[in-house]
């Protein structure tokens, strides 16, 4: 406690320095609520393919890592998030036995973390993740397995961002069942199509079931529109319907898909001349996500 007081005096003395203000804020929050800073978990999902889950989780991880420490986890055996962040497409060979599957089996994720940039790490996946359900069955692994594997690094990150496959499966339920005392959130992706419209209540049901049975702290952060065609005339009707059926759940930001964002998978983030253009819609979304996660953070 004495150390804290001394530190706060130092912080006060240099109070005009932004870095110290930040330290002071974090310390005062920690003291006030008596909790250590742990990672907030955000899972991107929807039981329909092609709704920008991987791109959105990848870009969100990148943007959050500008100021905070982020661990991205690929729970989809297609490995799109892995390829998106590493620019490596031969995932079966390059990441052989170095994936989230082995991390779950070893009950410790640390050996499988890859450094992407200063504040951004990744646990990759590849096609072998398809064997997860069988492994769970054979070895009696339960839905808290990811939580167990993440336990040693929970305080090393501010955010854990998880990409999931478009299915009701172990790969989707396990991340949703992963508890963090800083909060666990689900972002429901929506591409504006009828298929996705009907997938929303199904995914909300998976969230509810995971919450009820495994992770009482799980919250739906919101529904994120990632429109395939921003000029389609049914978009407005879809927006109204979602607002009516799930009031207040929709993120105000709408991602309008563009070629520059798609090309991030080719050009990457570093020294990309069209980066600002590619991230245009994601920047306000991430701000919104931060606000929602902060609002819903358990107080103590």
């Amino acid at each position: 406690m004495i150390c804290f007081i001394i530190l706060l005096v130092i912080v006060d003395k240099y109070g005009d320095n932004n870095c110290f203000i930040n330290v002071k804020m974090k310390l005062s929050i920690s003291i006030k609520w008596g909790v250590k800073m742990t990672a907030k978990i955000v899972t991107f999902g929807i039981s329909k393919g092609g709704c920008s889950k991987s791109v959105s989780s990848g870009v969100t991880s990148y943007l959050l890592s500008k100021e905070e420490r982020v661990l991205a986890i690929d729970m989809d055996g297609q490995g799109n998030l892995t390829s998106f962040l590493t620019n490596e497409y031969d995932i079966c060979n390059v990441f052989e036995e170095k994936t989230i599957l082995e991390a779950i089996q070893d009950k410790d994720v640390r050996k499988y973390i890859i450094k992407i940039s200063e504040n951004l790490d990744l646990v990759p996946s590849n096609d072998f993740l398809a064997t997860l359900p069988r492994m769970m069955y054979r070895q009696g692994i339960k839905f808290d397995a990811l939580q167990v594997a993440l336990e040693p690094v929970m305080e090393d990150y501010d955010w854990i961002i998880i990409d999931t496959p478009p299915a009701l499966s172990e790969h989707t339920v396990m991340p949703l069942s992963t508890y963090s005392k800083a909060g666990s959130f689900a972002v429901v992706m929506f591409d504006g199509s009828m298929f996705a419209y009907y997938a929303i209540p199904k995914f909300l049901e998976i969230i509810e079931a995971s919450k009820e049975r495994y992770n009482p702290s799980l919250k739906t952060a919101g529904i994120l529109f990632s429109l395939i065609d921003s000029r389609a005339k049914e978009n407005e009707v879809m927006e109204e319907s979602i607002e009516e059926e799930y009031p207040g759940l929709r993120f105000q930001t709408i991602i309008k898909r563009k070629a520059a964002t798609r090309r991030l998978a080719i050009s990457g983030f570093e020294e990309n001349p069209e980066l600002t253009n590619a991230l245009e819609y994601y920047i306000p979304f991430v701000e919104e996500l931060k606000k929602r996660a902060k609002q819903e953070q358990p107080q103590g």
């Binding site: 009701l168 339920v173 199904k202 049901e205 998976i206 079931a209 049975r213």
Partner: peptide
């Protein structure tokens, strides 16, 4: 039961 309930 629906698919989600059956799965769980």
């Amino acid at each position: 039961p629906n698919a989600t309930q059956t799965f769980f």
